[in-house]
């Protein structure tokens, strides 16, 4: 697979559109997932992912082959999403649609899915309150399992800046966690208790 990817990349860099589309097919989930986690909306994530691939295609001649292609793509997508969020000047995105998660073949039980979705949704909501770059660092760390060095490369930051952003984001999450949990439990009680009677 690695050999094939390299071949498609070489061909794409020589101007072969079809090979770039194969790369899009291969990397679409990673790029889309990042955009989705950053923007919190399926429609915007689709647009952002498409735009990120287009920017990558147009700037392919600037790609440094010594870097990981995936990191380069995610870097383009991260910067685009950060810009979009700054444009919107929104600190909190209302999660008004359920997150569409893709589970593998070993899907958990419906109760487990419900519980997982519920917790993921809470976490998403909290992550969405973070500053765009802090959010990007956190998404890359936990959804893309990137090291601090990789995050630094992706976001064009120093490793110490990434550490500081991750620290800030984690602290903020931890502090907001309790408040949100209490709010959520109160909301749940208000919603479901009358049905039990």
């Amino acid at each position: 697979m690695e050999h094939e990817l390299q071949q498609w990349l070489d061909e794409a860099m020589q101007g072969k559109e079809e090979s770039f589309c194969r790369l899009v097919d291969h990397y679409q989930n990673g790029v889309y997932n990042l955009c989705y986690r950053m923007l919190g909306n399926r429609h915007e994530a689709e647009d952002a992912a498409q735009e990120s691939f287009w920017r990558a295609y147009r700037n392919l001649h600037r790609y440094d082959p010594s870097r990981s292609f995936q990191t380069w793509l995610l870097s383009i997508a991260s910067h685009y999403c950060i810009d979009q969020q700054r444009k919107r000047r929104m600190t909190l995105i209302a999660i008004d649609e359920p997150f569409e998660e893709t589970f593998g073949s070993n899907s958990p039980t419906p109760e487990h899915v419900y519980s997982n979705n519920e917790q993921s949704s809470q976490m998403e909501e909290l992550i969405n309150t973070l500053k765009p770059t802090d959010r990007a660092a956190l998404v890359l760390r936990y959804w893309h399992q990137m090291s601090e060095k990789e995050i630094a490369d992706t976001l064009s930051l120093s490793v110490s800046a990434v550490k500081s952003r991750l620290f800030r984001a984690r602290k903020e999450l931890a502090e907001k966690m309790e408040t949100r949990r209490e709010e959520y439990e109160l909301h749940e009680r208000e919603t479901y208790e009358p049905q039990k009677i």
Partner: peptide
């Protein structure tokens, strides 16, 4: 607080996938 948040963050988090036909649309 961080232990709780960390447990949620470290769970195997599901990847969001685009609607089918993404590369064709591109």
């Amino acid at each position: 607080q961080w232990q709780k948040a960390s447990r949620m963050l470290n769970k195997p988090l599901p990847m969001a996938a685009p609607a089918p036909g993404f590369s064709a649309r591109f």
